[in-house]
Design a protein around this nucleic acid. Sequence first.
DNA 1: TGTATATGTGCACATTCATGCACGCGTCAA
DNA 2: TTGACGCGTGCATGAATGTGCACATATACA
Lengths: 123, 123
Amino acid sequence: MTQNSTTIDSSSMSRQAAADKIARILDAQFFRALCEPVRIEIILVLIRKGRSDVGAIAEELPQDRSVISRHLQVLERGGIVCASQEGRHVFYELDASASVQRFEAILGQLRALLPLCCPAKPR
Amino acid sequence: MTQNSTTIDSSSMSRQAAADKIARILDAQFFRALCEPVRIEIILVLIRKGRSDVGAIAEELPQDRSVISRHLQVLERGGIVCASQEGRHVFYELDASASVQRFEAILGQLRALLPLCCPAKPR
DNA sequence: TGTATATGTGCACATTCATGCACGCGTCAA
DNA sequence: TTGACGCGTGCATGAATGTGCACATATACA
């Protein structure tokens, strides 16, 4: 039972277009990388210690080193961190620039929804 | 093996402060609501159809109505949608305003990380 | 060349979570 | 008051995923 389901909503076209744009940007893969508490902890470690290799990151966390390695792969696929190999070590670094661009794109499309999707604000 | 681990990094204090601020904002609960493809579909339905009740949303998706109901609860706890009961119906609506504020807060803290956490940009 | 170190991966296990069905509760209509 | 409708929840099941151990690979050092 949708409001105005029987009448032709003048904003239906823009709603559909907005939905299409949001669908392209709201990547579940990206958010999945951020929904795991341990991965959040890894991000915090990278902020505190800066560019570090797998062993150094794992030292700061209770999980096994192999687990941290896997989480770092997920973060890399999500575009949150970037890896660079130097000899035996693989250094990981927070890619704040890419994340900022990602969030800016989402925020831009989200602002376009404000006139369409804002609930009544009893403030 | 962290870079500059032996020397006192002049930005270590600001790094710690930045990590603390990020830790408060990067809520896994919020991202968990967005990492499920079905919940993304629900968001798209709410954009297309606007404020709708559970049954109307479930009509647009293959999952059972009870499943949609549970997903909507997760979205509500994450602050993505807001619910309002009217008689037998419970209407859900995308809270774009709250989401925009959420993303703006994250983006603000993320921009503060740019001078600290940017990888070398070979562009 | 041989050894130690750093990392990733296969495997098994435990936990979390999405899913659908059945049922109970609350509300509206007759 | 009785029946129909909308919604949420308990329960069981299967899939996805986090976790740790053992092992293989690659690289640096003596």
